[in-house]
C-alpha cells in the first residue's frame, strides 16, 4: 500500500492529458474516440482512487459510479462508432476536420 493517492491522481492526470492531446491532434474520428475513452478512463481511475482512499469505502459509492460510467462509455462507444461508420458512408472519409457542415 505504498503508492499514495497523489500518485494515482497524477497517473490519472497524465492519462487525461494524453487523451486530450490525442483527441485534439488526431484527425481520424476513430482516434478521437479513443482519446475520449482514455479521458473517460482517467476519470474512472480518479473515482476508484478516491473511493479507496476515502473515509467510507464500505458504501461502494465510487465503485458504483465507475460501473455506471463504464456502461455509459460502452453505449457511447457503440453510438460514436456507428456514427463514424454512417458518416464515412456518406462522405467517404473519417477525417473530423472535413466534418464542418455545422460551421457558422
Amino acid at each position: 500500500m505504498t503508492p499514495s493517492l497523489n500518485q494515482y491522481l497524477v497517473l490519472s492526470a497524465l492519462l487525461f492529458g494524453i487523451g486530450l492531446a490525442g483527441a485534439l491532434a488526431r484527425r481520424n474520428a476513430v482516434l478521437v474516440l479513443i482519446g475520449l475513452e482514455l479521458m473517460l478512463n482517467a476519470a474512472n481511475l480518479n473515482f476508484i482512487a478516491f473511493w479507496r482512499f476515502g473515509p467510507h469505502p464500505e458504501k461502494l459509492m465510487g465503485l458504483m459510479f465507475v460501473l455506471f460510467s463504464i456502461a455509459i462509455a460502452a453505449g457511447e462507444a457503440a453510438l460514436g462508432l456507428a456514427l463514424v461508420i454512417a458518416i464515412y458512408r456518406h462522405r467517404r472519409t473519417a477525417q473530423v476536420d472535413r466534418f464542418d457542415s455545422l460551421k457558422g
Binding site: 486530450l20 483527441a23 464542418d100 460551421k103 457558422g104
Partner: peptide, 18 residues
Amino acid sequence: WVSRLQNGQVQRYLRVIG
C-alpha cells in the same frame, strides 16, 4: 466574425473547452 468561431470543427470546440 462570431460565426467564424463556430467553424464546425469539433476539435476546435474541444480545444476551447480545454
